[in-house]
């Protein structure tokens, strides 16, 4: 994936692969789920990068590799120049403080028995930061930062609204002053009006704290709103990446195009009459040969079922892995007319 502009990126992911061996069922021992297959990705300081894709694209698995919740099968992850994917406990300990996850459903990520004050304080306790009074002061500060009124501090999660619960989860994630939040679908369980509050909060935190954000989501309108750059994943691969305006206004990969076309627009004068993507995402146990998208691709040509497409560069940021897009860039005139939309 293209680099963030200027300087060494905060997070650098190179050739990361994650395969889950199949341990149960009829396929036991016979293969693996190819969840992530050779992904490069970089996130700069204070940058918002989004990973978008449908179920089974590998976006959440990649997020878990980055937060250190699971170990990649292959590839390297550098954080602030230090390799963290297979390194010593010391380096990983420091890295764990600086990269924090935020999950989709705050009800399942918060301990239901704990008052929210304890949930937010827990990372400070775990890393033995400050004395009791300092920790209490820090909790108040964090609650204020995420817009939680102080009088809620002794409430249990069940006594809070979904939006307030997600603010608690974000406050806890910020307790150790991370440089990067990895947020996996942080607003998809929320109502529209609450979603707007949390998106505003994340944008505000980025502004005030210089926080970088890796935002994993399926909702393209949310991604378009919040991101600087976008990477589109399909069956474990990044198929297209670039700045948000490049990817949304000039998509080069047919999958990106189909994804954008499939968004139900809140505009009855623009009803969906465009080409539908047929079929469904294939099994990651036995992914298709060549380009993994070719069985569903509306513009696939012969080579697509044989050769895995390499990334073609369209601008300093914009890349896509597509034979047709590459051929079109190389020579516009040789392509059949109906592919001109690419």
């Amino acid at each position: 994936m293209a680099e963030p502009t200027g300087g060494r990126p905060l997070l650098q992911v190179e050739g990361v692969v994650k395969r889950f061996p199949i341990r149960r069922g009829v396929l036991r021992g016979a293969g693996a789920v190819h969840a992530v297959e050779g992904v490069d990705l970089a996130v700069g300081r204070g940058e918002v990068v989004s990973l978008v894709g449908e179920s089974g694209s590998g976006k959440s698995t990649l997020g878990k590799c980055i937060t250190g919740m699971i170990r990649p099968t292959a590839g390297r992850i550098h954080f602030d120049g230090v390799e963290v994917s297979g390194s010593s406990r010391g380096a990983r300990g420091n890295f764990r403080r600086r990269v924090q996850p935020v999950f989709q459903d705050p009800r399942s990520s918060l301990d239901p028995r704990w008052a929210i004050e304890r949930t937010i304080r827990e990372p400070l306790d775990a890393f033995r930061i400050g004395n009791k009074a300092a920790r209490a002061a820090r909790v108040r500060e964090l609650m204020d930062l995420v817009g939680l009124p102080a009088h809620l501090s002794q409430r249990k999660p069940s006594e809070l609204s979904g939006g307030q619960q997600q603010r608690v989860a974000i406050a806890a994630a910020l307790a150790l002053e991370p440089d990067l939040l990895v947020a996996d679908e942080p607003v998809s369980a929320l109502d529209v009006s609450v979603q707007a509050q949390i998106l505003n909060l994340l944008a505000d935190l980025r502004q005030r704290l210089g926080l970088a954000l890796l935002f994993i989501a399926h909702d393209l309108s949310v991604i378009e709103h919040i991101s600087d750059r976008v990477a589109v994943m399909y069956l474990g691969r990044i198929v297209e990446s670039g700045t948000v305006s490049e990817v949304f206004t000039d998509p080069r990969h047919p999958y990106t195009r189909a994804l954008i076309d499939a968004i139900p627009r809140p505009d009855p004068t623009q009803r969906m009459s465009r080409t539908r993507l047929i079929g469904e995402i294939p099994s990651p146990v036995n992914p298709p040969s060549g380009c993994r998208f070719h069985p569903r691709c509306p513009v696939a040509i012969g080579v697509c079922s044989q050769d895995d497409p390499q990334q073609t560069t369209f601008s300093s940021q914009h890349r896509a892995a597509c034979h047709v897009a590459a051929a079109q860039t190389a020579s516009l005139s040789e392509l059949p007319h109906e592919r001109a939309w690419l």
């Binding site: 529209v192 009006s193 707007a196 944008a203 378009e224 709103h225 948000v244 949304f248 809140p266």
Partner: peptide, 20 residues
């Protein structure tokens, strides 16, 4: 109206969303 205002408009870098 407030519900429609809270929708991410699709035009990126649109600044803060209106909240209720």
């Amino acid at each position: 109206r407030a519900l429609f205002d809270a929708l991410p408009s699709g035009s990126h870098q649109a600044g803060a969303l209106r909240v209720i």
